[in-house]
Nucleic acid binder design. Structure first.
Ligand code: SF4
Ligand code: SF4
Lengths: 134, 134
DNA sequence: TCTAAAAAGACAATTTTTATCTTTTTATTG
DNA sequence: CAATAAAAAGATAAAAATTGTCTTTTTAGA
């Protein structure tokens, strides 16, 4: 339970690698994939998601590749994880109360809410800089 | 991500209902299932798991059914969840470091460890009594 | 125009989840 | 003892999610 998927793990590896590169060095997807040991086609999908929300910037064509979208200390682990895994949802009723008619009186409901907050807090407190630094 | 499965949700509902019953009242599985709106055959599997580790006690035959294995304030939500979902594992390297060769230098690894601890702490701090009380 | 590289979309194998159904074991009761 | 009640165990299966791959398209540079 609560397990990060491969996709999430790959996503983190990839972007942490990027964050560890010299500031404005443009990296090939194929190079990143090889470096962090992830299937290139899979990582491509992941970086497309990153690109859409601006977590990375991409350049096409010759000399193209990827760079970080913002300074590495301005990107949190939470953003990275949520970009590919979606919101941190310990239980569906946390995000969709209507899902369960019992939520009116349910005492479990607020516990999941607390779990959500705790997890988010941990992940939000870590930046790519923290993860890529020496 | 981090989402409880139906099985986990059902498990909690079922055992919380049991905890809310008068002390030594033996409950039929079919009654519990109906009360908490869970497929009876599915709940049966769940309660079998509970029974194996003593979270509930079961009686077969006429007049049989289930009662809580211990006082409701001695059973934590963590136990219940882990009984059916397995350990709280935010990332597999947390439990099987050998899984990933990068764990020696990896800075992400300890973050998942912290997530694990936080989640466990929240769930461990809640008992069935807390969840079933008026 | 040719080539390099990412973006997009379609597809597929595998695994996990979410059950259901049947048979077996155990206990009670008349 | 026979009949019945109820949980335990086991087999099976549909649906969904995960984990990829492959092909085509778009964009940019040389
Ligand atoms: S029973 Fe409570 S915890 Fe479970 S889904 Fe409903 S509101 Fe959420
Ligand atoms: S790269 Fe780090 S976080 Fe990811 S599996 Fe390996 S040790 Fe764990």
């Amino acid at each position: 339970m609560m397990e990060l998927t491969r996709k999430g793990e790959y996503a983190i590896r990839g972007i942490v690698y990027l964050a560890a590169q010299p500031e404005d060095r443009v990296c090939l997807l194929s190079d990143i994939a090889a470096a962090v040991d992830v299937p290139p086609t899979f990582l491509a999908k992941i970086f497309q998601q990153f690109s859409k929300i601006g977590l990375v910037k991409s350049y096409r064509g010759t000399g193209g590749g990827f760079v970080l979208g913002r300074a590495s200390d301005k990107i949190t682990l939470l953003e990275v994880v949520e970009a590919v895994e979606g919101q941190i949802i310990p239980n569906r009723c946390v995000v969709t109360p209507s899902e369960c008619s019992r939520d009116v009186f349910c005492k479990v409901h607020p516990v999941w809410k607390r779990v959500q907050i705790q997890v988010r807090d941990v992940l939000e407190g870590v930046t790519l800089k923290d993860l890529s630094g020496a």
